[in-house]
C-alpha cells in the first residue's frame, strides 16, 4: 500500500482515538437512559462535561508532583495503547512485540490511577486504590495468559502478525469468551467499577481530583475503554476477512471495525444498566476462578486443539 494511504489510515486512527471515546460514552448514557425510561442527555454530553472540566482549575490537596502528572501519564498511556492497534490494516505505531507493549501500556492507566490515589491523605482514595490494586492483581494474570494463548496460536507477539496468523481451534473460541470477560473487568464497567464506586468510596482514587486534572483522568479512562474494545473488535473481525491488499478493502475493514465498536457499546451499556455493583471480594473470587480456567485453556492450546 502506498505511504499516503498508510498515513491517511494512521490519521484516521488518531482521530478515532481522540474523538470517538466520549461519543461512545454518550451513546452508553443514552442507552442506559432509555432502559430506565428516561429522556437522557444528548450524545455530546460527555464532551460538554469534559469541556467544562478542562476549563476549570484544579484544587491540589498535596505537593506531590505525581498527583499532577498522573492524569497526563495515564492519558498518554491510553493514547499509546490505542495507537498500537490496527486501523484497517495499518498500525499507527508499529513496533515488534507490540502485544506486550499494549498489555503494559493499558495496565499503566490503572497503575497511575492507583498511584494517584495513594498520593493524598484520604481514606476513600486509599480504599479505592487498594481496590484498584486487587482488581489489577487478579485480572492481569488472566489477561497475560489469554494473550499467551493468542501468541502461541499465531506464533507471534506482534498484534498485526497475530491477527494475520490466527487459526480457529476450540481453545481460541474459549479464549475469546474469557477475553471478553477479562477486558470487560479491566475496562471497569458497571459490576466491576468498584474502585471508583461513587456511593461507597465517593470516586475512590478520583475523590480528591477536580477540574482539569479530573477531566484528563476521565478522558484517559474513556480512551482506555475504547482501546480495549477496539482490540477485541479487531480480533473478532480482522483474522477472518482474508488478506487485506487494497486500500478499498482496508477502508471496508475499518468501517466494519468502527461499526462493530459502536454496536457493541450499547450492549455494554445495557449490561451496566442491568447490574448492581459487586463487592471486591466477589470480584477477586470470580477473577481467580477465571484465572484457573485460563490456565486450562492454555494447556488445551499447548495440546494443539
Amino acid at each position: 500500500m502506498e505511504t499516503t494511504a498508510k498515513l491517511a489510515f494512521s490519521f484516521i486512527g488518531v482521530l478515532l482515538t481522540f474523538l470517538l471515546p466520549p461519543y461512545l460514552d454518550g451513546i452508553a448514557r443514552r442507552v442506559k437512559a432509555r432502559l430506565q425510561y428516561r429522556r437522557g442527555p444528548p450524545l455530546m454530553q460527555t464532551w460538554y462535561d469534559l469541556n467544562k472540566l478542562f476549563s476549570l482549575p484544579s484544587v491540589k490537596p498535596t505537593k506531590s508532583a505525581l498527583f499532577t502528572w498522573a492524569p497526563y501519564l495515564a492519558l498518554a498511556s491510553a493514547v499509546i495503547g490505542a495507537l498500537l492497534l490496527p486501523y484497517g490494516n495499518v498500525v499507527p505505531i508499529d513496533i515488534g512485540f507490540n502485544l506486550v507493549v499494549f498489555f503494559y501500556v493499558i495496565l499503566m492507566v490503572s497503575v497511575f490511577l492507583m498511584l494517584a490515589g495513594l498520593t493524598v491523605q484520604n481514606a476513600f482514595s486509599h480504599l479505592g486504590s487498594a481496590r484498584e490494586m486487587q482488581i489489577i492483581l487478579t485480572v492481569e494474570p488472566l489477561i497475560a495468559i489469554l494473550y499467551g494463548v493468542l501468541a502461541y496460536n499465531a506464533g507471534s507477539l506482534n498484534i498485526s502478525d497475530i491477527i494475520a496468523n490466527l487459526h480457529l481451534t476450540p481453545s481460541l473460541v474459549m479464549t475469546y469468551v474469557l477475553l471478553a470477560y477479562a477486558l470487560y473487568v479491566e475496562s471497569g464497567f458497571m459490576p466491576f467499577d468498584i474502585a471508583e464506586a461513587e456511593q461507597e468510596v465517593i470516586g475512590g482514587p478520583l475523590s480528591e481530583y477536580s477540574g482539569r486534572l479530573l477531566g484528563v483522568f476521565y478522558y484517559a479512562i474513556y480512551i482506555k475503554r475504547f482501546a480495549l474494545l477496539w482490540f477485541f473488535v479487531s480480533l473478532l473481525v480482522l483474522p477472518w476477512v482474508g488478506p487485506i491488499n487494497t486500500t478499498l478493502k482496508a477502508a471496508e475493514v475499518l468501517a466494519v471495525q468502527f461499526l462493530l465498536t459502536v454496536a457493541l457499546y450499547p450492549v455494554i451499556a445495557s449490561l451496566e444498566a442491568t447490574n448492581a455493583r459487586l463487592r471486591i471480594d466477589h470480584v477477586v473470587k470470580m477473577n481467580t476462578r477465571a484465572f484457573f480456567a485460563g490456565i486450562v485453556i492454555l494447556a488445551i492450546a499447548f495440546m494443539g486443539w
Binding site: K32, L35, Q36, Y37, R38, M190, P191, D193, A197, Q199, A273, T274, N275, A276, R277
Partner: peptide
C-alpha cells in the same frame, strides 16, 4: 437501596 449498590435501573424504575 438499589441506587446504593449501583443498580440505577432499579432506582429509576422504582421512582417511575
Amino acid at each position: 437501596a438499589a441506587h446504593l449498590v449501583g443498580y440505577d435501573t432499579g432506582f429509576m424504575h422504582a421512582w417511575r
